[in-house]
Amino acid sequence: MTSRIDNKRCIKMYEQMLTIRHFEEKAIELFEHNLIRGNIHPCIGQEAVSVGVCTPLRRDDYMVNTHRGHGNCIAKGADLKLMMAELFGKSTGYCKGKGGSMHIADFQGGNLGANGIVGGGLPIAVGAGISIQNRETDQVAVCFFGDGATNQGTFHESLNLAALWKLPVIFVCENNLYGLSTPVRESISVVKISDRAMAYGIPGVSLDGNDIIAVYTAMKEAGERARAGEGPTLLDCITYRFYGHFTGDPGKGITYRSKEEMNQWLERCPIKRFRERLIKEKRITEKTEKTMEADVKASIEAAVKFAKESPLPLPEEALQDLFH
């Protein structure tokens, strides 16, 4: 399957997955050292969804993100320095320190921001789809949300409206099997989240979200469909968050997930799987991979240095940016 994707693109995808993984690990470490406030919702384990979905996107395509959104920001082309500075609450950050981890927005890169409200972003993505349709461009809007969001009213309203008006929106469910501690089997009335697409008369696909090629392929098809004016698609990418809900989750979610289950999913690590594939297909070697990993780590260290050295906002800046 990978043979259909050119070498350069495959390597870039792998590098982005590594970047997300190391960025998140660094962010957790910094949080533990009290350098980052609030909380972090790490997306470690879900890298294949972020990168698989964003790779076929153009820079001018829109993305609406979730609280567990660092990976999606990176995959959509965010600058690590500006991201890290935002996590540090510095005035050089993407949102001048006003948004933090859950609200990174990069309008130049099509990133319309992340949401602290589960399901809050779906109608916004629909609006971006309307905007594309009215401006008659061939952009698309991607909407990320978790399995929990599919039980919100906004899910129904948004999919219905997008289907009704054939909007160029791709609804991507990062189905990591839990809404905080509540498993999907206790919260969702259908077997597969993609079954819900039927209610709106749109295509819905459930797929292995830890297989980046599967995600990429499905997304490419959904994107082409959207660009051709054929309307929205629902992608249910089944994956797993290795670190639990957030940095405050005891034992990475051990209070509601068995050790056995967690270990099984570690075996299905999307990065490990992609790496084995790339090595088998001789697209990377252990040596080139080592160099890549070192480069990734260096870029993250540079981001941390930039964030540390950046100025904190002045108290009077608290009153700015409310209105234009």
């Binding site: 829109y62 319309l112 109608p123 916004i124 609006g127 971006a128 789809g129 906004t154 309203e157 409206l161």
Partner: peptide, 18 residues
């Protein structure tokens, strides 16, 4: 349709994108 959240949210998404 009768979808108040989608009306406001989609107006917002459209407004944010021009």
């Amino acid at each position: 349709p009768i979808s108040e959240s989608a009306i406001i949210g989609s107006a917002l998404g459209a407004a944010m994108t021009g």
